[in-house]
Amino acid sequence: MDLGTIWFILWGVLWAVYFVLDGYDFGIGIIRPFFSKNDTETRIMYNAMGPFWDGNEVWLITAGGVTFAAFPKTYAIMFSSLYTPLMLLLFSLILRGVTLEFRSKVDSAGWRKLWDVCNFLGSFLPALLLGVAFANIFMGIPLDQDGILQGNLFTLLNPYGLAGGLLFVFLFAHHGALWLAQKSEGEVRERALRTAGKLWPVVAALVVLFLVMSWFMTPLFNNYLLHPALFILLLVPVAGLLLTYKYRREARPLASWVGSALLIGGAALFGVFGIFPALLPSSLNPAWSLTIENSSSTPLTLSIMLGVALVFVPIVIIYQVWAMHLFRHPVTQEDLDYDEAY
Rank of each mutant, 00 (worst) to 15 (best):
P51Q: 04
P51W: 03
W53A: 13
W53E: 14
D54H: 13
W59A: 09
L60N: 02
L60A: 13
I61D: 02
T62M: 15
A63C: 05
A63I: 00
G64C: 04
G65M: 06
G65P: 07
T67N: 07
A69I: 10
A69N: 07
A70P: 00
A70H: 05
A70N: 08
F71G: 01
P72Q: 15
T74D: 05
Y75E: 11
Y75P: 00
M78T: 15
F79Q: 12
Y83S: 08
L86P: 15
L86G: 08
L89S: 05
L90F: 06
F91N: 06
R96I: 10
F102P: 09
F102T: 09
R103A: 04
V106Y: 07
V106S: 00
D107E: 15
D107S: 14
S108C: 01
A109L: 06
A109F: 02
A109Q: 05
A109I: 06
W111R: 01
R112Y: 03
R112V: 08
L114G: 09
D116H: 01
V117K: 09
F120R: 08
L121C: 12
L128M: 14
L128W: 04
L128Q: 02
L130I: 15
G131H: 09
A133K: 01
F134N: 03
A135Q: 01
I137G: 00
I137P: 00
F138E: 06
G140F: 05
G140M: 04
L143A: 12
Q145E: 14
D146C: 01
G147M: 05
L149Q: 05
Q150R: 12
G151D: 02
L153C: 02
L153S: 03
L153F: 13
T155K: 12
